[in-house]
Design a protein around this nucleic acid. Sequence first.
DNA 1: GCAAAAAGTGAACATATGTGCTAAAATGAC
DNA 2: GTCATTTTAGCACATATGTTCACTTTTTGC
Lengths: 210, 210
Amino acid sequence: MASAKMQQNLDRTLEFIKKFVKEKNYSPSVREICAALGFKSTASVQNYLERLRAEGKIRREYSKNRTIYLVEDEEEFSDFESVPMLGNIAAGQPLLAAVENDVKLHFPSDFFHLVGDNFCLTVKGESMREIGIMNGDVVLIRSTPTANEGDIVAAQINNGEVTLKRFFKRGNEIVLHPENSSMEDIIVPEGTEFRILGIAVGLMRNTLAR
Amino acid sequence: MASAKMQQNLDRTLEFIKKFVKEKNYSPSVREICAALGFKSTASVQNYLERLRAEGKIRREYSKNRTIYLVEDEEEFSDFESVPMLGNIAAGQPLLAAVENDVKLHFPSDFFHLVGDNFCLTVKGESMREIGIMNGDVVLIRSTPTANEGDIVAAQINNGEVTLKRFFKRGNEIVLHPENSSMEDIIVPEGTEFRILGIAVGLMRNTLAR
DNA sequence: GCAAAAAGTGAACATATGTGCTAAAATGAC
DNA sequence: GTCATTTTAGCACATATGTTCACTTTTTGC
C-alpha cells in the first residue's frame, strides 16, 4: 500500500505535470519529471507514472514521447466560444468591420447555446430592465438577419446605433418594444432602412459586486 | 513566395495539428504530420513547420519531441473557473457536502471576478427581479461568511433553504431585503441561526431564447 | 532486530523523433 | 523548351526519451 511519503510523491507528480502542461503547452518527459521531483533514476518516475495510470489519474501512450496528460484536465475541459464584442459602430459602418476591433469575450459552451455566428454587446440604458436586462450587462447575440415575433433583437435603424428591443410586426410596420413601461414603442415605418443583426440568446453580468 | 498549393499545405498542416492536439491532448511528431499530409520526407514537414513558425502561427521547442503547438490556441485560451453548482441542500446539511454532487459550471475568468472559493446557484422565484435577477438565472457566489450592508447575499436561516437577498442590519437584527416591491423584508431576530454563504458577484442567463 | 516487501538507483538498451544535407522532381517565368 | 527557383525525397545522424532489469537502500510487519 502507499505510504504517506509515497502518496505525497504521487501528488507532487500530478501537480508538476499539471503545472508543466499549463505553462508550456506540452507534456513533460520522464526525465524532466525525474529532475523536478529530485529522483536520481527515471525508473522511479516510471514507477509513479504507472501507479497514476493504474489509478486512472493520467493517461499516456506507450513508448511515445511526451504523451502524458491528466485525466482531470480532460474532464474539466470546457469548450468555450470566443465571441467578438461589438463596440460603438460608426454610422454606416458594416457590422463586420466594427467587429475587427477584436475585443473578445469567452462564453462557456456548456451553458450557452452557441450555434452559428455570435457576437456580444454591452447594454446601455434601461430600456429592457423589466425583463432583467440591465445597464452594463453583456448580451450574447446570435447573428441572423431575421427574427420571429417576440424575439429580443439587436437591430439597426438607418445605420444608426444598435439597439436591443423586442421585435414585433404590425401590418407592414415593425414595432420595437422596450421592456420598460415608461418608454414608448419604436415604430419602424415600411421602407425605412432597417436591419436585424441578431437575436439575444444569453447574458452575463459582473456588476453585482466587486 | 508561397504558391497556392503551398499555402494550402500550410493550412492543412495547421489544421492537422489543431485537430490532433484537440483529439489526443499531445502534439504530433514530425513524422506523424508527414504521414498525415502524404509527404514522403520529414524534411518537407520541417520546411512547413519552419514557415509556420516564422509566420508566428505555431511555436515549438528546438529539438524537443512533440512540442509543437498553435499560437492561436494560446491566444484563444481563456482561463475559466470550474464552479460547483449548489443543488437543493437538505435541511441541516452542510454546504460542502451538498457541493459534492459535483455539477459544475464554467465561468470565464476574463469576465468575472473570480477570487477565493466560489459556487453558483440557480435562482428560483421573483424576489430579486427589480435589479434584474430573474427566475432561472445562474448566480455566481463568492464564498464568504460575512458581508457588508447592501451586498446581495446567499444566506440560510435555521438551516432552511438558501435564499438570495440584499443584506442589511437594523440594530441587532438582520434584514434580508427582496428587490421586489410586492414582497416584504425578512427580519432575522437576534439569536436566530443564520449563516451567510457568500455574496453574489456575477450572473449568467441562457433563457433569453433557445 | 530481522526477514520480506517496497522504493529507489544505475546503467544499458531500444526507439522515437528532430535535424541537416545533397540530389531529384516539380514548378514557374520567359 | 530552357533555366532558375521552389519543393520534395532520401538518408544519415544526433539526441531525446521511454523501458527494462539487476542491484542497493529503505521501509514495513512482526
